[in-house]
Amino acid sequence: MSEDLRLMTLAEVSALFNIPLRDLKRDTKAGRAPHVPIGRGTERVHRRMTAEHVRAYQEVRAREVAPQQPQQEQPVDPLRQAIQATKKATARRRGHRAVAR
């Protein structure tokens, strides 16, 4: 059996590739990480991964964890801030007032 086709447990994958086991379990259960479900039913599914699955998962994680470019801060406009604060306060007051019909 070639190394690419060998099925590894999530604990083995976690130890070999330095991926937190909790993240690996969560992502396989949610379908974000490719895996092979072993067993019948849905209660206690045993999940296994091949080396190809691990490579694909690492690429996805690298894209998600890639640093985002910082957004440039918009200049502060005091008039706009005052208008927004007034709108929020008005909405809050109207939301708490009982409506008589």
Rank of each mutant, 00 (worst) to 15 (best):
S14G: 06
A11E: 01
I38W: 10
A33I: 09
K29L: 13
H35D: 10
N18L: 11
G41E: 01
T28Y: 02
R26N: 14
L7S: 02
T28G: 05
N18A: 15
L21F: 06
K29R: 07
M8Y: 03
A33F: 13
I19L: 15
L7A: 06
L21Y: 05
K25M: 09
K25A: 11
V36W: 05
N18S: 13
I19H: 11
T9I: 02
E12L: 02
H46C: 10
E3C: 06
L24D: 06
R6K: 08
M8R: 02
A15H: 02
E43V: 12
N18M: 06
R40C: 14
R6A: 12
L10N: 02
G39L: 11
V36T: 14
S14Q: 00
A15T: 04
G41S: 07
L16C: 09
V45D: 08
A11P: 00
E3D: 09
D27N: 12
S14D: 01
A11K: 00
D27A: 11
P37V: 03
R26Q: 13
R6D: 10
R40D: 15
F17H: 07
F17L: 09
L5T: 13
R32P: 12
D4S: 07
A30L: 11
K29S: 09
M8W: 03
R22Q: 07
I19Q: 09
S14V: 01
V13E: 00
E3A: 12
L16H: 04
L16V: 07
L5H: 11
D23T: 13
R32C: 14
I19N: 08
A15D: 06
K29D: 09
D27Y: 05
R44Y: 08
M8I: 00
R40P: 15
P20I: 09
V36C: 14
K25D: 05
G39K: 09
G41N: 04
T28Q: 01
E12F: 01
P37F: 06
L10Q: 02
T28C: 13
R22F: 07
D4R: 05
H46I: 11
D27H: 08
R44Q: 13
T9F: 03
I38F: 15
N18D: 14
P34C: 14
A33Y: 10
G39M: 11
E12Q: 05
R22E: 11
L16N: 03
P34A: 14
R44D: 14
L24N: 05
D27M: 09
A11D: 01
H46G: 10
R32N: 15
R40L: 15
P20A: 11
T9V: 04
V45K: 14
R6Q: 10
T9N: 01
R22D: 12
V13Y: 00
R6N: 07
P34F: 13
